Amino acid sequence: MAKGNSINTYHMNDPLYPSIRARDAPNIVDGFDSSTSDVRQKIRCEKIVICEQKTEGDVVAEAGAFGTIMLVSDLDDFSSLYPLPVSLVNLETNGSTGISKNPTATILRRKELSNTQAPYNSSFSSWGPNKINPQILKPDLAAPGVDILAAWPPTIPPSKVPGDKRIVAFNFLSGTSMACPHATGAAAYVKTFHPPWSPAAIKSALMTTGKRIQSKYPMGVNDSNNQNGLAFGAGNINPLKAIDPGLVYDATVSDYISFLCGIGYDASKLKHITGDNITCAQNQSSTDLNLPSFSDPVPRSTPISVDFYRTVKNVGSPQSKYIAKVVASPGLNIQVEPETLIFTAARETVF
């Protein structure tokens, strides 16, 4: 028995079906016998087909196969849905691919109970750094985007493969398009508790309360703990904690104008964006945009010193005290001034 991966909506009633390698299946197309690894639609192959590569399953389904087992070198970190029963099997995990003379197989419909690695950064996530301006850390944060149950239009088959006749109201999908509504919903949830808060304040609340997660794909970054801020930003969203972040980093239009001035925008470019005649002040810094994250490109093996200035607002208890705690990688010397913030009123601001 081999453990596979897919989203299977079918029940295979009989326990075992005859099986065949795709390369061994009859492959007659318009009278021409071609020796490829595909199973063509003009023959009937009422068996479970074993494919030595990942496919969309459309050709095998059109050939009348009962199902297909796809042998892959590495399983994806998300599941896909096919027009017939499918199991993706990892060759390395399940050993030899030798097949007996009269093989039989079936594809069981199982339920994954838990994933001890979750949550972790997926392979398709939107990675940093910010290529336009690396002084703004991207991504901001992470949200669930793998195997998400979502509404589905009745005009499109769930596998998106022509010939799939199924109609469903919901489907499992993976991608940043699935993470986006989670983040949007979390922001709307925070807004219901704090209607006056600006989008920047809500974003700050979500970021400062995010939970660090595993980065499964470190992209060559030397990080022994497998933690990479360019993968998940401030961490995984936690809406319950975000409604009470204690402090928020708010940002206004003037903050963004100062940032644009700091990266070289002139009055002409600013007018295209704002519609107003604005003159940049001298010595405006691009590192002082009032975001809850801090980022600056560092040349390899070159000492560098950078100052970041931020303004925080107390949205917690009127009598509040916050003490800075720094966890830095070797070679970094990070100082926070002042180390302690003491507030005596709600919505009090410290620069």
Results as ranks from 00 to 15, higher is better:
I50E: 04
I50C: 01
C51A: 14
E52G: 15
E52R: 00
Q53N: 12
K54N: 06
K54A: 08
K54V: 06
E56G: 15
D58P: 04
V59E: 14
V60E: 15
V60W: 02
A63L: 04
G64S: 08
A65Q: 08
A65T: 06
A65Y: 05
F66C: 05
F66M: 10
T68G: 02
I69C: 13
M70R: 11
L71I: 15
L71H: 06
V72S: 12
V72G: 06
S73K: 13
L75I: 12
L81P: 00
Y82P: 02
Y82W: 09
P83N: 12
P83I: 01
L84M: 14
P85E: 07
S87V: 09
L88V: 03
V89H: 02
N90Q: 14
N90K: 14
N94T: 10
T97G: 11
T97C: 07
G98W: 09
I99S: 08
S100P: 04
N102G: 05
N102D: 15
T104D: 03
T106C: 10
I107Q: 06
L108C: 08
L108D: 13
R109S: 13
R110L: 11
R110D: 04
R110F: 02
L113D: 09
L113E: 12
L113H: 07
L113P: 03
S114M: 07
T116V: 07
A118E: 03
N121V: 15
S122H: 10
S125P: 00
S125Y: 02
P129K: 04
N130E: 05
I132A: 11
I132G: 04
Q135F: 02
I136E: 07
L137S: 03
L141E: 01
G145M: 05
A150F: 06
A151R: 09
A151Y: 12
W152E: 05
W152N: 05
P157V: 01
G163H: 08
D164L: 10
